[in-house]
């Protein structure tokens, strides 16, 4: 998802490489009849961006954040069996 989100940001003129974008995710596994099963994954993005660009691109960032999972092949592969949530923290640089 990070790759897809980064691509969606850059397509909208928002830098997302070289330290501008990273994610920290937690996957939670539970036992299902003794078998470990991935139940949910939370992806927390951090986007470093200048205050000026954020003000200019706020709507575009939100749109990329909202829509990118549907363009992510892995999300689309596993989303019916794993509850995937996402967060975005914007850090002004």
């Amino acid at each position: 998802m990070t790759g897809t989100f980064g691509g969606a940001l850059e397509a909208r003129g928002i830098p997302a490489g070289d330290g501008y974008l990273f994610s920290e995710s937690v996957g939670e596994l539970e036992k299902d009849n003794g078998t470990l099963v991935i139940k949910r994954v939370n992806v927390k993005y951090t986007l470093n961006i200048s205050a000026e660009l954020q003000a200019e691109k706020e709507a575009a960032i939100q749109r990329a954040f909202d829509l990118h999972p549907e363009s992510c092949p892995v999300y689309k592969t596993v989303q019916t069996s794993i509850d995937i949530s996402k967060e975005l923290e914007i850090v002004e640089t």
């Binding site: 490489g17 974008l21 596994l29 139940k39």
Partner: peptide, 19 residues
């Protein structure tokens, strides 16, 4: 707590498709 294990992963976008 029903969670038996938490897997933590960090992804850094490098350039283009490279992470």
């Amino acid at each position: 707590d029903p969670v038996a294990y938490r897997s933590t992963v960090r992804i850094e976008r490098v350039k283009g498709p490279i992470r």
